[in-house]
Structures are given as C-alpha cells and as structure tokens.
Nucleic acid binder design. Sequence first.
DNA 1: ACAATATCGATACTGGAATATCGATATTCC
DNA 2: GGAATATCGATATTCCAGTATCGATATTGT
Lengths: 211, 211
Amino acid sequence: MNKNITSQTLSRLPLYFNYLISLPESRKSGHISATAIAEALGLNDVQVRKDLASVSNGGRPKVGYPTKELIGDIGKFLGFANHDGVIVVGMGNFGRAMLENRSFADYGFEVVGGFDCDEKLVGTEINGKPVRNVSELGSFCRERNIQIGIITVPEAAAQEVCDIMTGAGIKYILNFAPVHLSTPAGVAVHNENISLTLAMLARKNDIGDIK
Amino acid sequence: MNKNITSQTLSRLPLYFNYLISLPESRKSGHISATAIAEALGLNDVQVRKDLASVSNGGRPKVGYPTKELIGDIGKFLGFANHDGVIVVGMGNFGRAMLENRSFADYGFEVVGGFDCDEKLVGTEINGKPVRNVSELGSFCRERNIQIGIITVPEAAAQEVCDIMTGAGIKYILNFAPVHLSTPAGVAVHNENISLTLAMLARKNDIGDIK
DNA sequence: ACAATATCGATACTGGAATATCGATATTCC
DNA sequence: GGAATATCGATATTCCAGTATCGATATTGT
C-alpha cells in the first residue's frame, strides 16, 4: 500500500474494479492473481501488480490477492463510498442526460439538482431531480456545501455560469462547452470537448506516419 | 513541415486550433509566438514549437507564426475541411445531444443519422436527422462508407452495438457506455466514461500524492 | 520432506516524450 | 548602423511509464 500514485494508474483502477465486481460470486470468495487480471484485460501482469501495490496490502505468492478485499481496497481508494453532491447547469439534452446518468452513483457521486434560466423548465423535475433557477445556485450550493459542478450550457453562456459557480464555492468543474474557461486559483476545471475528442480519435491514422 | 508526427502531438493540435480560432479577429490578422500559445494553454513553449513544426512552414524569430496561416495549416492537417459522416446509436438524451451538437461541423464531422431499436423513435427526426432501426445500420454504413460511430446506449447493450458497428465497417468508435469494449484489430475505440472523468477531476487532490 | 510451480515484489532496463540549452536570425530601439 | 531582445529550430538531457528479469515465498503433489 503506497499512496504515491500516477494518474495513469488511477485511470486503470476503475478498470480492475469493474472487472472484479463482474466476476461470478463463486470466484469472488477466493483469491485472484495479477496475472489473471492482466490476461483478462489485455494488460501486462507486472503493470497490474504495480498498480495494485499502490492500493492493496499485497497478495501472496502462488495465491494472489483476496478478491473481496481487493474490490474493497480499490473502491475505498477511489472514494466510491463517498456521496459527493453534484449540480448540473444547462438543461438541454446533455444536461438531462447527466441527471439521468445512473453510473455516477457507482463512483460515489450524486446529482442533487439541475439549474437553468428558462422559466419553462424551472420548477420541473427530471429523473426525480428538481430544476431550479440559476439565480438560486449560489445559496443552494453554499447551504449544502456542493463542490462539484457540470456545465452543459451553450458556448456563449459558459464563462458566465463558470463565474457563478466559482462564486458559489464550487471547486471542481466539468465543462462540456467548447470554450476554454478561466477560473480563479484553487478551482479545477476539466474541459470535455466532444468534437475535439472525436477529432483526436478519427484523425490519428489518417495522417502520414504516426508513431 | 515534417510529416512524422506522434499521436501526442496530434492530440494537442486541435487544442492549438481551438485556441487560435477563439482569438479576437484583431489578433488573428497578425502573428503569434509559440511562447504566447504555450503560456495561454499552460504548456511548455518548446513543446508547442515542436508540435507546430510538424504542420507549419515555420515561424520567424522575434515575430512568431502568421496566425491565419497557422490556423489554416492545422485545420488542413487535421482534415477539418473534410466532411466525415458520423452515426450515433442510442437515442437517449445523450444521443440526442449528439445529433444536435453544432460544434461537430467546425471539426469536419457531420452526423448523418441516429439509430435505435425503439420502434417509437424509429422513423422520427431529431434536428432534421432521421432515426433508423439498428437493423439497417450495416447496409446504411456500407453504402455510404461511414467509418465513425458514437455509442450512447446503456451499458448492457454497448458491446452488442459495438459488434454491429465493426461488422458494418466502422473504424472509429467513441463509446460513452461505462464498459470496456473489445474490438477486432484495426478498430480504434475511445472510451469516454463521464463518471470516471469526474472521479479523476474531483478525487485527485483527495488521494495522497498524484503525479 | 522435498521438488516443482505459481505468484509476488523489487530492481534494472528501455524507449519515448517532455524539457532545457544553445546558436542563429529577425526585429526594435537608440 | 549596432546593440538589445524576442523568437525560432536543433540538439542534448532528463524524466517517466511500461516491461523484463530475478530472487523470495507460498502452495501443491509425490
């Protein structure tokens, strides 16, 4: 168990977690080897072992890691037992998809509500979650100490929404608008530009010689 | 202008492109330095220079790169003048958002249609784009030589849809279902797990030291 | 009990990407 | 025109993730 971890390792942990919980109950009761996990996921066994070393108390030679304990360790490490509240601003299709996304719960997040400035939407519910007016965002987040926000508004409104969020004490912002947001220090932004992602994926092999 | 390019460089090019086109018109008419770009995007200036060297004819010392030319070069290189057809399978909110996303066009993509297996949706139009039955996917894609597909179906159906896509000759898959897809060689998959992204964003500081 | 085997963990190696350094060149200012 | 400065491009260096190797250890089978 070594708390020094790279983001690459961090990004593979959910993969292991996913794989382990998908195992039939019979296999969960025993042990599992890094070799077996690597095989199943098409990875290198040493890599898996190194990754696991950073979250677990170690496995035993010839036996492997106790499966249930390992699941617990990874889950705990990733904070999947948390219940962090998340708000979503912009109730277009994207925003609605966020409110309906069930997989957040698996990772310890709970979307507690949506915000929009369209009066026709304010007051409605989506997937049982209320839609509030953006003007209430500040008080809502401060009251509940919400620290995570998702921006799914059109490009033009993104920076304004971002400012409102940071003003409300939001510390982590996931931004789906295709613009670069500027934020005060201490606020982490992740820009998720779908078109960009697609471009990176689909253009890789097109062009000349790529390593 | 050197056509040997790494995928890392390639993945940064759209970033530069994005930044450059977002500049006010006044600054676009002049020149821009690698240093300035690096500063704005939080990257190393040498890295930016090296990246740009692979697509542009070079800048001038003390002056930088002619901005408009650079935009053109990157855009041309990335194929943003293309019109690559894209299909979307799964007409939930997510899928609908994809059909309505205007920013694809900026990057040379055109969503040509959606697919679903819900008969209530098949035959309708979303944002002027027809929704077809998944059973027609194969013939549709082969006829039009579609190579790019986006998966926005629930977890359980993702692998099946993936198989149908690869069977239809799709070469690039953007997958929003939170599962690892297995594909034949020659098919590129990008898994976009929103929950995971959020976890990495919001948990980074929680957990010990992350590099 | 002892040999064979599977697996672990630590260390060493490798290759590629990021970064630092440096000389060359264009521009600006005096 | 010449000094100062910003920037480029090339080369050298550093760093890091991934992989291979190897000794140690636990289990199994004879």
